[in-house]
Each structure stands twice: as C-alpha cells, then as structure tokens.
Amino acid sequence: MFDIPDFIGWLLNPENWQGRYGIPNLIQEHLLLSFGAIALATFLALPIGIAIGHFNRGTALVVLLGSASRAIPTMGLLFALVMLLGVQLRELAVVIALVAIAFPPLLAGAYAGISAIEKHIPDSATAQGLTPWQLLRIVEIPLAMPAIIGGFRIAWIQVTSTVVLAPLVGLGGLGFGIIQGLALRNFDQVVASALLIVLVTVLGDQLLGFAQKNQAFRLGHLSGGKNK
C-alpha cells in the first residue's frame, strides 16, 4: 500500500532530525514519559504485588484491578487529568494516565511470581532460620524475578504504545509525527513515525525478554533444576 523509499527518505532527511520536534527530541521525550510512568507504577505496584503474593491475601484485588484497567478509556482519562491538574502540569497528567495502564501488569507479575513458589521452599528457608525479611529478599523475590520482568514487558509495550497520545495535550513523543502527519496528509511522516514507535516498543521488549531469560537460566542453574 505504501512505497518503501518514500518514508525511508523522510527518515533520512536531516531536517527531520533537528529542532524541538526533531526525531531525537521526540524519541527522548517518548522514553522519558514512558520511563517516568513505569518507574512510578513500579514503586506502587511491586510492594503491593509482593505483599499479596507473600501473605496470600487480597488476590481478588489483583484480578479486579487487572480487569478494571482494561475498561479505562486512556484518552478520556488523559484529558480529564489535564483539565483537573491544569495545562502546566500536563507531563504529570500523562504520566498518571500511563501509570494507570502500567500498574495492573506489574502488580499481576509480582503477585504471580511470588505465589507460584512452591510452599516447601519458604517453609524450609524459615526452618533454616531465615527471618521473614531475609526470606523475601534472598528467596522469594529472586525466584519471582522472571515473572516480575514479565510484568515489566507487558507494561512497557502498553505504555510505549499509549504515550503516542501525548501530542494531543501539547507534549511531544513519537506520536507527534502521526498526529501532525495525518493533519498534513504527509503519510511518509505517519508511516515513519509509526515505524519508530514499533521499533522502540519491540526493542525494549526484547531487552527485557533477554533479562528475563537470563534470570530464569540463572535460577535454573543455581538450583540444578530443569532450566539448566
């Protein structure tokens, strides 16, 4: 449907790599907003998820939040937050809207990772004299790590593909090229920007996937188990 040389040409045009809305700036803003949201969501979701998994209480909350998050209209939430906080805090509004998306998978990942640990493992660790805090730090969290990283992978994909909405409220990010390109009917710009978004999303996911495999392999190796 589209010509490959046209949007490659747009990508290679040095004009598009300069200024406030040049590609480097847009990528940077895209990543900063995404990292900000995921960092804040991590801070909130991991302790709660780990606690739920550890004490095996409040699992209903995980299910509830997981389903509820799917019903949130992100764009509506974004506009409501901008109106509520005022345009001068629009970065914060975007980050909060993205936290709402990143929170459930992170929570679910942490919870699933901890609760999947077979009961005899924490029991024997306790029997060996580990305090509850040591048990969490030395045994449970490392064992849950692959699942926790799995949560990060889902959160990353959802956040980096939703931060595309930021230009609607006057911010940058790679969605800018799509929104500007559609209005100008510059479809090379639209395709090129979409490609960059996919690239950033997939690259981040692959990196996290690598970390996840690495972690799982290390665990298998240490325990001499089936992952060896």
Binding site: V87, P167, V169, G170
Partner: peptide
C-alpha cells in the same frame, strides 16, 4: 512554535 494540540486555548490562558 509550541504544538499545544487540543489544549491550545488553555495553554494561552495559562
């Protein structure tokens, strides 16, 4: 130029 999108009037007032 600042691309203020759908918040143009609000940005002016702010």
């Amino acid at each position: 130029f600042l691309a203020t999108g759908d918040t143009t009037v609000e940005s002016l007032v702010a």
